[in-house]
């Protein structure tokens, strides 16, 4: 069972909900895929047992073998290679590691080497959540390859909870891809509402079933409720805006441990998600 938590808009409460869910899911694995700004560790406080560098593959040009024929720069769709006639220069931030330049070089002058793009950490929390997160190296542009790596780092069959980065682009797609169910966390504002619709578009495209959690719920903003109702979307939970939840989060505390009734909300959410997944399997 793989459950992902995503949102479109940042700061709606993805990580709080993801960590809350993890804390009530027996024997689960939590994977923080927000590799640009991972925050799950702040709430879950894992003991880190392993930390290793992650690498991307980039081409290395042997200038002694190269005859500057231009083939590599022609096949590179990302303009990552520049031919200065005495040197082929690689802008590695633009390289997507596709391997085409290496393959097509007629002089066999290109080899592939590893370049650090971040680090992956593995740990365990006091209540036995297996914890993974990753840090994109500051200055590195593409997050998606590191997201894929940290997601694939766990290969067992324990239930997995994936905390997605915000947005609706390739990073979010990479994080939620292959989930059995996605929880979209939104908030009672036009920003939250707008970005929820964008996130739904992504999930529809890749056929992932989803449900909605409205965080910081405010009944005065009825547009969101009407939209959910009119489109028969699956509303899983409303979490009211409450100062005690905000304060608990600000201190880096997990609300399931400090805020009365938050744990009950999370247990209820987990049950609903499980039912949805079962429903899908028998459909």
């Amino acid at each position: 069972m793989v459950i992902s938590i995503a949102s479109g808009k940042g700061g709606t409460g993805k990580t709080t909900v993801a960590c809350g869910l993890a804390s009530v899911t027996n024997n689960c694995v939590y994977i923080d895929c927000d590799v640009e700004e991972p925050n799950g560790h702040i709430l879950l406080k894992p003991k880190i047992t392993l930390e290793e560098s992650s690498y991307k593959i980039i081409p290395k040009i042997n200038n002694d073998l190269c005859n500057f024929c231009n083939k590599c720069t022609e096949v590179c769709e990302f303009n990552a290679l520049l031919n200065f006639k005495t040197e082929i220069y690689l802008i590695d931030e633009l390289c997507h590691s596709c391997g085409a330049c290496t393959y097509f070089c007629p002089q066999k002058a290109i080899t592939e080497v590893k370049k650090e793009n971040g680090k992956i950490r593995i740990g365990e929390t006091s209540n036995n959540i297996l914890f993974y997160d990753a840090y994109l190296k500051v200055g590195e542009a593409s997050a998606a390859p590191l997201i894929k790596k940290v997601k694939n780092a766990y290969k067992g069959d324990r239930p997995v909870i994936i905390d997605s980065p915000p947005g609706t682009s390739c990073s979010m797609l990479e994080a939620v891809k292959d989930s059995d169910f996605c929880v979209l966390v939104t908030e009672s504002t036009p920003f939250g509402f707008n970005d929820l619709k964008l996130a739904i578009n992504v999930l529809r495209q890749i056929n992932i079933p989803y449900g909605i959690v409205i965080n910081k719920y405010d009944e005065n903003f009825s547009l969101l409720d009407e939209y959910i109702h009119d489109n028969q979307l699956n509303l899983l939970l409303r979490i009211p805006f409450r100062m005690d939840i905000a304060e608990s989060y600000s201190k880096g505390e997990l609300p399931t441990e400090t805020v009365k009734d938050y744990k009950v909300m999370m247990l209820d959410l987990l049950e609903k998600i499980k039912k949805e997944i079962v429903k899908k399997e028998y459909a």
Partner: peptide
């Protein structure tokens, strides 16, 4: 700007 520290931020 966008959130994060990745390519759209750069």
């Amino acid at each position: 700007g966008p959130p994060g520290i990745g390519c759209p931020v750069n």
